[in-house]
Simulated assay, not measured.
Amino acid sequence: MKSAFVTVGTTSFEELIAAVTAPETLQVLRSLGYGRLVLQVGLGAAAPAPFRTAAFTLDVFRFKESLAEELERADLVISHAGAGTCLETLEKGKPLLVVVNEKLMNNHQLELARQLYRDGHLFYCTCSTLLESLKSIDLSTLKPFPPGQPEKFAAFLDRVIGFE
């Protein structure tokens, strides 16, 4: 049974929670073979009740120390466009659909999502286009995200500070 994980980060993004739990969206997820949906709802007031049926499970939580376990189990991650969440998901090699919060001012999240989309690492949409995006995206076309190279940053910092 495939699992989808939705995360809103440390704030609230109630529009995303409402969009992903709409009956039409749940039906599309089921038709795509997802039998489990896990929601991390953050500070939002919207916290749907968990449920289990023979064909589908919905689990809900606000926060955890780490999302690593949920990311590991997920076959698809649907996320807000926070840089940390995007990078952690991509580094784990998980397919990512970023949902941009259009209500944010000076939306740097949209810039990040667009660039990572152009590079072929993720798909992005808005809450109003989530349903159509789920129906149309081909996760097999995503390119692996290259691993970080912290030693390059350390060498750069050494040069700048004068340790070389």
Rank of each mutant, 00 (worst) to 15 (best):
A19D: 03
A113H: 11
P146W: 07
E15F: 10
A46V: 15
F123W: 15
L32F: 03
E132R: 13
Q40I: 02
L139P: 03
P144V: 08
F156N: 00
P95T: 09
E15N: 14
E151K: 00
I161R: 14
R30S: 08
S136P: 02
L96M: 11
E132H: 12
P23F: 07
G120P: 03
K152I: 00
E14F: 06
R62P: 01
L116W: 13
G93S: 05
P48K: 13
L67T: 09
H121Q: 08
A22R: 14
L37F: 09
E111W: 10
C127W: 04
A113T: 13
T21D: 07
F5K: 12
K64P: 01
F163D: 00
H108M: 06
L130C: 05
T10K: 10
P144A: 13
A81H: 04
F163Y: 08
D59S: 09
E65P: 04
L26I: 13
L32H: 14
S79L: 06
A4P: 00
K92N: 02
L142P: 06
A4T: 14
L97Q: 11
L29F: 03
A45I: 12
S128L: 11
M105C: 07
T53S: 15
S3V: 13
A154N: 00
Y34G: 05
I161N: 05
A74V: 00
G82S: 11
K92V: 00
C125S: 15
T57L: 12
G9N: 12
V20E: 05
T85M: 08
S133R: 13
P144K: 12
L87E: 04
K64F: 01
V99C: 12
